[in-house]
């Protein structure tokens, strides 16, 4: 059934545009199953870094609808996203450090986390509130481009790309492009489509 749906998407992708209903269906199919671990890898480059920074770990959507990211490499950390709130626990200097932040959609990096939470929950309403969306599909793969509606945000977050294969989300990538067209910052969360053991 899902394959049929993706195939339909593919056929439709040749048409001038997707309807809102199609995006809605796609997003709702992206909902992460509850209590299933998947591996993920986060890569990032910013002006402060001389090389790409990589983190690896597991990701799980809990029964209470929160999203937990357990980072195992290079240092252990737990990030929990729930109802627009991020809670971070990490070990530093032999002690557990705890930090909790309300995510402010007026801050670009917060908006990326809010989008990750919304995408894994299939929360179309939240995404609609903050982004203009467009979908491209080819064969079994697809990509949704999220452009922040607020001009102020677009200065630091040019767009957000959410891509996948079939019914699975595989990448979420935020990019900031300079006026000359070169890439200034990017952050990508790559999700292994196969559930972890």
């Amino acid at each position: 059934m899902c394959r049929l749906f993706v195939a339909t998407l593919f056929i439709l992708s040749g048409s001038p545009g997707w309807s809102d209903t199609d995006v809605d269906t796609l997003l709702s199919n992206l909902q992460f199953p509850m209590e299933v671990d998947v591996n993920f890898q986060q890569t990032q480059l910013s002006p402060l870094l001389k090389r790409v920074n990589q983190q690896r770990g597991r990701l799980r959507r809990l029964n209470d609808n929160s999203l937990v990211m357990w980072i195992d490499h290079p240092r252990r950390e737990e990030r929990r996203l729930a109802n627009g709130l991020v809670t971070v626990r990490r070990q530093h200097a032999g002690k557990e450090r705890f930090r909790q932040m309300q995510l402010d959609p007026q801050r670009p990096s917060h908006l990326v986390l809010l989008a990750l939470e919304a995408v894994t929950q299939g929360n179309r309403r939240m995404l609609d509130r903050h982004f203009d969306m467009s979908v491209q599909a080819r064969a079994d793969s697809w990509q949704i481009t999220f452009v922040p509606r607020a001009q102020q945000i677009r200065q630091q977050l040019t767009h957000l790309l959410v891509s996948g294969q079939g019914e699975r989300l595989t990448h979420l990538r935020s990019e900031r492009i300079r006026a000359d067209g070169t890439l200034s910052h990017w952050l990508q969360v790559s999700i292994d489509p196969v559930p972890a053991d």
Binding site: Q44, I71, R75, V88, R107, Q156
Partner: peptide, 24 residues
């Protein structure tokens, strides 16, 4: 190095301009 790694972990979530200015 431990301290700088903590900032690296922070930046993996928060990399807005003001956060980068502060950390720098």
């Amino acid at each position: 190095l431990d301290l700088l790694n903590s900032r690296l972990d922070d930046l993996s979530m928060l990399s807005d301009d003001d956060a980068l200015t502060l950390v720098a």
